[in-house]
Amino acid sequence: MTTDMLYLFFGFGVVWLGVFGYLLYVTGRVRGVRDELHDLRGQLEPSEAGRDTPSS
């Protein structure tokens, strides 16, 4: 009975760690890339004043 519960706990631990760990990892990378994107746009915009054409 106790080992039974232990395995159950173990199994769910792996699943939740895996899924949420992956989500956090991806979200973290999205944030990183987005910051980089922001920086790049910042660098581009001063030299390209008046560029802001509305996106279509």
């Binding site: 991806v26 890339v33 980089e36 994107l37």
Partner: peptide, 24 residues
């Protein structure tokens, strides 16, 4: 679906970064 959305956003942002680098 949430993971897919995040993961695709990541890909899109990464390709946007390389596009901007190319423009620079």
């Amino acid at each position: 679906l949430v993971l897919l959305r995040q993961r695709m956003t990541l890909e899109l942002a990464a390709s946007e970064v390389s596009r901007l680098r190319e423009i620079m």
